[in-house]
């Protein structure tokens, strides 16, 4: 009897696992589609690459950071797609990384959930120059995703509803 129950339990787990795998496959496929959408928003800038930042909403706030280089007075466009977000996140862009307490906030974007938003490096540069006297141009930026805490989230074993991603596609003016 105990053996039969064990087998049934195992089959149950296998089914749950298969469902999880299917959900994750769908999640990945959606991200591919959203990347295409984000890429379209770059035009007429030239595509340079993408960075998908994956995370799981937890009961506490998290910050994930992506460093991006800006070269030789080139104009860049950053296209953020938040259509794989179950909850909103805040995007903050700084001139320095999160260990630097004197860093300058260049822009802050909220309401990215379900949308595709574009940020231009020329706007970031203008803010940078206005906030830092004598500064000429940004040579890199740090994109911080502030992921809020969610009450009741499963920190150790996140479910699909806690899974999220922001797709960032970058382009430069040729």
């Amino acid at each position: 009897m105990k053996k039969t129950l064990t087998i049934i339990a195992l089959f149950g787990f296998a089914l749950v696992f298969a469902q999880t795998a299917a959900n994750l496959t769908e999640f990945k496929e959606n991200i591919s589609k959203q990347k295409v959408e984000a890429k379209k928003a770059l035009k007429p800038y030239r595509y340079d690459g993408s960075k998908v930042t994956y995370f799981n909403f937890k009961t506490y706030k998290q910050v994930k950071e992506v460093e991006i280089y800006l070269f030789n007075n080139t104009d860049y466009r950053f296209s953020f797609n938040g259509k794989s977000l179950p909850n909103d996140v805040t995007i903050k862009i700084y001139d320095e990384d999160k260990t630097n307490p004197k860093r300058i906030l260049l822009t802050e974007v909220s309401g990215v959930k379900g949308k595709n938003l574009v940020v231009e490096s020329k706007d970031l540069n203008a803010t940078y120059k206005s906030k830092k006297s004598g500064a000429s141009r940004l040579k890199r930026v740090f994109v911080d995703y502030e992921i809020p805490g969610v009450t009741g989230a499963q920190n150790k074993k996140p479910t699909m509803k806690e899974r999220g991603a922001v797709i960032l596609v970058m382009g430069y003016k040729n």
Binding site: T53, Y54, N56, K64, E65, E67, I68, D97
Partner: peptide, 9 residues
């Protein structure tokens, strides 16, 4: 599905 805390492009 969990990116590192600090990443780069």
């Amino acid at each position: 599905f969990e990116s590192p805390e600090v990443d780069y492009h």
